[in-house]
Write a protein that binds this DNA or RNA. Structure first.
Lengths: 223, 223
DNA sequence: AACAATCTTTAGTCACGGCTAAACTTCCCC
DNA sequence: GGGGAAGTTTAGCCGTGACTAAAGATTGTT
């Protein structure tokens, strides 16, 4: 199934899942959204979406956006499973820093055999989340639970547990790492600056108040 | 350097090395040889060889064959280093059977970053040979020593140590594995059948005489 | 030395997945 | 309800690396 699809097809399906259902959305994804996510032109995206529709992997209604079909979602989840297993494996078995595992996994995910996937999962004890807190789809490729709310969506005074941090930006990850902000960290929101200003948060165990930009706060999922 | 070349280019360079210098040959490789090694048409090979010549990676003289240049050889050796490090890592760290590591490495070799290459080499203690006995090019990409002679080239009564077994054929590898024939095994050639007939060999520690076909004996290197 | 067999290259095609430029929808605002 | 901005698709192109068919070079044999 996966083996019969190209890297490009896998990237589109994974991207559609990640910015659609995977982010808790229900509406279709637009051509512009997927094209800018994958950093290709809108025309290229249209082309590929038409092709994916023909393959039965998405439903694409011209001018109206695109949604994954069941087969398309399975492939997206399998690629995501590869990606997150690899991130976890690279971090645990080879000591790759958590800000670098994403880039490595991004390439290798397309070339991991079923056999190796199974061996890696077993070696890790079948983990359920990657180093950034993102859920690893299970072998049966059921849809993992969507995230609840972002750090930005909290109210002043709230206490929350960090669930997931963004995985793709090494600089942000190094910053978070220095602050000790990893999945599982407790956070207390103290106050926020004016319009779009930074959020001030106290993270355990440190008692120091940290300023988190709106962009970053919107990319950190909490519960 | 490696990162700027496609998988196809890497496969041609690796193939040229493997069937040329790497097998102890000195003459140029012919178009037919590389095309059948890579299982592409001769016309496709001509095309690619012309392109590689233009890139300065090979010297291709029409109708006369092709040889690696220094830059081309470096790339070939880097791919080979990736391949053999991966084979070794998959076998040791993930327990992949020795008849399967080649196929996995064949794909992953093109997608291994410098960073991961270094981490894997360090984790393995900088090994000098893969599970099949093939030398792993060092980080500086110096040409490893060519093999000496094959099992077929021995005389009756000779004693030899198995150095390298062929890596690509799972069936042959499972057969050799059952017989306990791995790099380092001592072999005593007892006799051989008529014209192209099988070779009869006793391998330590077993005292049983085994029949080895000419094809297989020519693919086993000894010293 | 000429011919046939074999090897190699040239010519032309295809699928893939990008691109730009231009045309067409949709949507929002007046 | 008309017009313009934003979004989307169509048309046509490019590079990569395969392919087949046909033409050209080389080599061995007589």
């Amino acid at each position: 199934m996966l083996a019969t699809t190209s890297s490009a097809v896998q990237d589109y399906l994974k991207g559609l899942y990640s910015i659609g259902e995977g982010a808790g959305r229900t509406e279709p994804v637009s051509t512009t959204q997927i094209s800018s996510h994958l950093r290709v032109s809108a025309a290229s995206a249209t082309n590929m979406l038409k092709k994916l529709d023909g393959m039965g992997l998405v439903d694409h209604v011209p001018y109206r956006g695109v949604e994954l079909t069941d087969p398309g979602r399975k492939i997206a989840l399998e690629v995501l499973r590869h990606h997150r297993l690899l991130e976890t494996y690279l971090a645990e078995a080879l000591g790759v820093p958590w800000d670098q595992v994403h880039a490595e996994a991004e390439v290798l995910e397309h070339h991991l055999s079923e056999e190796l996937e199974d061996r890696i999962a077993a070696r890790l004890g079948h983990p359920t989340a990657d180093p950034h807190g993102h859920p690893i789809p299970t072998k049966d490729l059921a849809s993992p639970p969507p995230p609840a709310r972002t750090l930005w969506d909290t109210s002043d005074g709230d206490t929350a547990v960090v669930d997931r941090v963004p995985d793709a930006d090494p600089e942000a990850l190094r910053y978070l790492g220095e602050l000790g902000i990893v999945p599982g960290t407790n956070a207390r929101v103290t106050r926020r600056g004016p319009i779009g200003g930074p959020l001030f948060v106290r993270f355990d165990p440190s008692e120091v108040e940290q300023a988190i930009s709106k962009e970053l706060a919107e990319a950190i999922w909490v519960s």
